[in-house]
Computed example of a mutant assay.
Amino acid sequence: MEISGSAFNSGISTIQSGQRRVDQAAADIASNALGPQPQPTSAPPANQVNPSPSSAEQSRPDLAESLVALRQGQNEAEAGAKVVKTADEVLGTLIDTTA
Rank of each mutant, 00 (worst) to 15 (best):
G35C: 08
I29V: 15
Q48G: 02
S55V: 13
R21K: 15
A7Q: 03
Q48K: 09
S31L: 07
A26G: 03
A87H: 00
K85F: 03
A25I: 03
G5N: 14
A56L: 11
V49G: 03
T98E: 09
P53G: 06
N75Q: 12
E76N: 05
A26P: 00
M1T: 01
A56Q: 11
A33V: 07
T14G: 00
L63A: 06
I15S: 00
S52T: 08
V49P: 04
R71E: 11
L34N: 13
Q19T: 07
G18R: 01
S4L: 10
P61C: 04
D62I: 12
P51Y: 09
I95P: 01
E78Q: 13
R71P: 00
A26E: 15
S54D: 08
Q58C: 07
E57S: 14
I12E: 00
D23W: 06
Q19V: 09
A26Y: 10
S10F: 08
A99D: 07
A26M: 14
D23Q: 15
Q74S: 13
D96Q: 11
R60M: 14
A27T: 11
P45T: 00
D88P: 00
I95M: 06
F8W: 10
G92L: 02
S4Y: 04
S4V: 15
S13T: 11
E2F: 02
A25Y: 01
G73F: 00
G35D: 10
A56D: 14
L34W: 07
G73M: 03
A43N: 05
K85Q: 08
P45V: 00
G80K: 00
S4D: 04
P44F: 06
Q19S: 10
N9Q: 04
V22H: 02
P53T: 08
Q58A: 13
Q72M: 13
D88L: 05
A33D: 13
R20S: 15
T86Y: 13
K82T: 01
Q24V: 01
D96H: 09
R71H: 08
P38A: 05
I29P: 03
V68I: 13
N47R: 04
N9S: 05
L91W: 02
K82F: 03
R71I: 08
E57H: 06
A7N: 01
A87R: 00
T97I: 14
P51L: 08
Q48W: 07
A64Y: 09
A77I: 03
A46D: 09
L70D: 10
P38C: 01
Q19K: 08
M1K: 07
I95C: 02
Q16F: 05
Q72C: 07
Q74T: 04
I12V: 14
A7I: 06
S6H: 05
Q24E: 12
D96R: 14
G5C: 04
I12A: 00
Q39K: 15
G92S: 11
L67N: 12
A7E: 01
A43S: 10
I95F: 12
D88A: 10
D96G: 04
S42N: 12
L67T: 07
S13A: 12
E2R: 08
P51R: 05
A99I: 14
K85N: 05
A43E: 08
A64E: 14
V49Y: 11
G35A: 10
T97S: 06
G92T: 12
L67R: 11
P61I: 05
E78M: 10
G73W: 00
V90S: 05
Q19C: 07
V68N: 11
A77W: 01
